[in-house]
Design a protein around this nucleic acid. Structure first.
Lengths: 339, 339
DNA sequence: CTGTTAGCGCCTTCAC
DNA sequence: GTGAAGGCGCTAACAG
């Protein structure tokens, strides 16, 4: 009956130490306490404490087919959105005893594929995915194995999956209206490549409609920029500033990353905000209010999106077989002085 | 021999479909291909592809005692340091087929304890920990089970564990020298509660030495601030600014979070940087160069710290039994215009 | 080269 | 109330 001092303690050790069978220990672990005689309960409790026993999730999982693992796959962990969403996911995971495997795809479909396969191999019970737009086949495999998958932020139209996003169209319209109502007559959109990323596409579409109706001469000015290429961004910025100098100019930055690059380049070019060009964008950071006199932006409920997504996962795990639903959370325009 | 269309495919399914035994499939999975007749190899490959088979890590893990899981526990996922370090960890994890369970403790020892126990239950093969300073007993349990644990950023003096940090003393000294050499005569330290967090303690200690030697009247001015309490911070800021107005004043912010709060409060108080008070701090963000004319700061090699920590974990997993080592990476002062 | 056997740590009938 | 037995999906000798 002496304590082992090394290696992992198993249910067998506990059983022997407590002088009962493995079954009884198992019952104890699983809370069937009032089906065990009080004395044995006491012994088992003591054994567990002294042996420092922790039931192996792997063994439990193998048996009952529940890993207590959730996969959280983000396109860019560097994006504050990802971190905020993570915290939301985490809150509800903690509450229900789930752990989170975090994967970062860097917007690379290949990396995403690897991560998804890895998560599948690890038997995650649910998946929260900020998708690149590819790997439909793997997602299909998840569906076949009944592993609930929730899309976050980015929709995948042809894949009938639960989705949590923002009301991109409405909010984009709202901010553009505010821009135009401030007298801007030449509004440009700066964006990372849209490819098939739904929020980008939706925002761009609304911009196109509104710009062609309200920009001077109906000119739609969309600049697709590779954020790694600062020089090209500067060229774009300079050319936008130079053309039609008599118009009052503003830029709508399609996400936080490109906003950062724009501000940085404008500074280097000696372009003033908002005197030379007004700016507004998506995503909010605490830093925004400290840049110049504050950056006007759209704050997404990132944290809530994470929470909501994980709550959906939970519902599915609990057996909800309802039709996939798309949940749109409300974003909010925060007016500061950059317009 | 027909394909199952639902549920998880197991090694048994593959074996039957390919007309071989489970052992042979197992051999295939584990790369012992030249110990199998070419024809069977072909059949197995085909079966795996058609059945969409992915070996269960849980079952493998149970058998060979390798979960391919790494626990990454950070005190504050919101801190850019955590994200940068994560990416470093991730890089090497990807390379070696490990997955990462990310846990956020919010600097709460209780939450940390829960997370650690959870990770232990999941049989992580290694642990990278940005510690709160408590839970030595659980860490002890990890050691007993030979689960390599690497401390990152924050040391735990009485625990002889591998540790990856920054040369806090040297770099703090360097930046303070730069501050004093710019003619500042009244330098204050603003910090979150130091408690027993090693980088904070080390930075504060160096500050105390240098301030008592070089501040006017040898005055050491340390303000311990709860970052949640903006009012108290403002009071501190105002009082620091008012006392001895004839001295040239600067603040050293002990980390990025408190820096953010300081800048924000100074703005609200109408205090100008650096005319009224010069500032410098720790941690770097891309935003720093855009605030005013740029914030002078210390950039930590966060990403490398993550990489290095994970590399250490790997060495330990591979059997390195050497004495625990403390690896100090070099930080760097980035001078901008806030001083 | 390949199949049979015996577990890994745990849970779950099924008898007692 | 309790233990013995079987099996989750996989690997690792051990015989052929």
């Amino acid at each position: 009956m002496k304590k082992k001092t090394t290696g992992h303690t198993t249910i067998k050790d506990v059983a022997e130490y407590a002088g009962v069978s493995k079954s009884t220990v198992s019952r104890y672990i699983n809370g069937k306490i009032d089906a065990i005689s009080p004395e044995k309960v006491k012994n088992i409790k003591k054994a567990i404490a002294e042996l420092n026993y922790r039931p192996s999730k792997m063994a439990q999982g193998l048996k009952i087919k529940k890993s207590k693992l959730i996969g959280f796959v983000v396109a860019d962990i560097t994006n504050p959105f990802s971190v905020a969403a993570f915290r939301g996911v985490e809150e509800v995971c903690d509450q229900y005893g789930y752990s989170i495997m975090v994967c970062n795809t860097d917007n690379s479909p290949e990396k995403e594929r690897e991560m998804l396969l890895k998560l599948e191999a690890h038997s995650v019970e649910g998946l929260i995915l900020n998708a690149t737009g590819e790997n439909k086949d793997v997602l299909h495999a998840f569906a076949e194995q009944q592993i609930p998958t929730i899309l976050i932020d980015r929709k995948l139209p042809d894949l009938k999956l639960d989705t949590v996003t923002t009301d991109n169209r409405r909010i984009t319209k709202e901010i553009l209206q505010k821009i135009y109502s401030k007298g801007y007559t030449d509004v440009a959109l700066f964006t990372e490549p849209i490819s098939s990323i739904s929020p980008r596409a939706e925002r761009a579409a609304v911009y196109q409609e509104m710009a062609s109706a309200q920009n001077a001469n109906g000119l739609v000015r969309m600049y697709e920029i590779d954020v790694k290429n600062k020089e090209k961004l500067k060229v774009a910025l300079r050319s936008f500033h130079k053309e039609m100098p008599e118009q009052k100019k503003a830029i709508l930055a399609l996400n936080g990353l490109i906003m950062l690059k724009i501000i940085s380049c404008m500074e280097e070019l000696g372009l003033r905000i908002p005197q030379d060009i007004g700016i507004a964008g998506f995503d909010d950071t605490e830093w925004y209010k400290l840049i110049g006199s504050g950056i006007t932006t759209i704050a997404q409920p990132s944290h809530d999106m994470g929470r909501t997504a994980m709550e959906r996962v939970l519902k599915r795990i609990e057996g909800d077989k309802g039709a996939p639903q798309t949940i749109e959370l409300e974003a909010e325009v925060i007016m500061r002085q950059s317009l």
